[in-house]
């Protein structure tokens, strides 16, 4: 787990994987990639690097939006 990076995608796409690898090339120098396919992330990708998780997935962003809306709407309720 230590030396490998994990890349999670919703669908397998050679072109995308190459782009993502280039994007992350500096940190990935001399380390190997492990590719995972998980349709439940809906789109985008997730990189897991030791105990860092970079969430670029559609699911993660929807979740962020959901939390933000929950917080905002409860604030609206508080003002009334």
């Amino acid at each position: 787990m230590d030396k490998t990076l994990t890349l999670t995608l919703s669908v397998f796409d050679e072109e995308n994987i190459r782009k993502i690898k280039r994007f992350y090339a500096k940190a990935a120098k001399g380390r190997s990639w492990q590719i995972k396919i998980d349709p439940s992330i809906l789109g985008g990708f997730i990189i897991t690097d030791r105990d860092q998780l970079l969430d670029y997935s559609a699911k993660g962003q929807l979740e962020q939006l959901r939390l933000a809306l929950l917080q905002e709407t409860s604030m609206v309720g508080a003002k009334k």
């Binding site: 897991t48 860092q52 970079l54 969430d55 993660g60 962020q64 939006l65």
Partner: peptide, 23 residues
């Protein structure tokens, strides 16, 4: 007005990738 407020929030919300610390 409530719906409009929500749409406004969604429009203005900036989606950014998040970096988490995991274990």
């Amino acid at each position: 007005s409530f719906n409009r407020e929500i749409y406004k929030l969604i429009d203005n919300y900036r989606l950014a990738p998040k970096v988490y610390n995991i274990g």
